[in-house]
Design a protein around this nucleic acid. Structure first.
Lengths: 142, 142
DNA sequence: ACACTTTAGTCAGATTATCTGACCATTTCG
DNA sequence: CGAAATGGTCAGATAATCTGACTAAAGTGT
């Protein structure tokens, strides 16, 4: 396959990372699906509203609600009252959720280390910086 | 959101690109779903076996077969005999499929142009080169 | 203060994508 | 040749996602 598109080039390492992190988290005793993890990843440390989660994960609020229900079931998050708005509730990360995040972060650091070794520290930091700049024009939330 | 992970940083532009390309292709009169497109994207110009498509797209061959059926239905690909192996068939891109690809490629070029403008030509080429190197250790097919 | 509009979230039902397991036909290899 | 591997399909189950309709609370303008 000659000259893969930038889209594919972005996707390949993304999927590699995602899959390895997911495998590690599940393997460490935190069963979770990919779809659940994609929402979980977006939960703000201070708690998130369902609507915001849905927007960030680019799914409907129904889908987000469905997945949050499962995350609650798994013990990773809890729903608490939003004292500032009686319609809303906040999705908040539990202790167990934080434990799972710790596992994820460790694997992520490990993988980033591999990438740094392969590219060289300079190129690695450059890559990160370039991606951050790209985010400015590709992330509606940035 | 401070300091997003590299995973997220890779994902954001990827999704942006994918969504815009998909919207354009569908808008140009080539209805296709995301899942179908992800398989379609992997069809080799010379034709691909289902098993290879499945591996490249990281789905089971049943799923790949299901999606290829729909691509055939949409007129984007056809299944032809593989003269070298009577068990196999080749998935081959049709004329209509190539037309759809032309639309996709045009949008993709447009987006890459935007990125190049934003990052500067030098950084853009660097990014592409770094991602190519990253592919060496993240793509089982490279 | 009251009607109107917007926002947060849920309920119900349908569709799409995906998997596992079992199976058949053909090819490859000892 | 016979056993094992390979390419693919069939059947059935589950996961993820959507659209549409709805309730309740908040915000807005006169």
């Amino acid at each position: 396959m000659p000259d893969p598109s930038l889209g594919v080039l972005l996707f390949l390492p993304y999927r590699h990372l995602e899959q390895r992190v997911l495998d590690a988290v599940v393997g460490a005793g935190y069963p979770i699906t990919l779809a659940q993890a994609r929402v979980f990843q977006r939960v703000d440390p201070g708690g998130s509203r369902l609507t915001d989660l849905a927007a960030a994960a680019q799914v409907t609020k129904q889908t987000a609600g469905f997945l949050v229900d499962q995350l609650v079931e798994g013990g990773y998050v809890e729903r608490v009252r939003d004292t500032t708005d009686a319609r809303a509730r906040l999705v908040r990360i539990t202790r167990r959720g934080h434990d799972a995040i710790d596992v994820a972060r460790a694997v992520q650091d490990e993988i980033e280390g591999e990438w740094r070794d392969h590219l060289g520290a300079e190129a690695f930091e450059r890559l990160r910086a370039d991606l951050l700049r790209l985010r400015e024009i590709t992330d509606p939330w940035a």
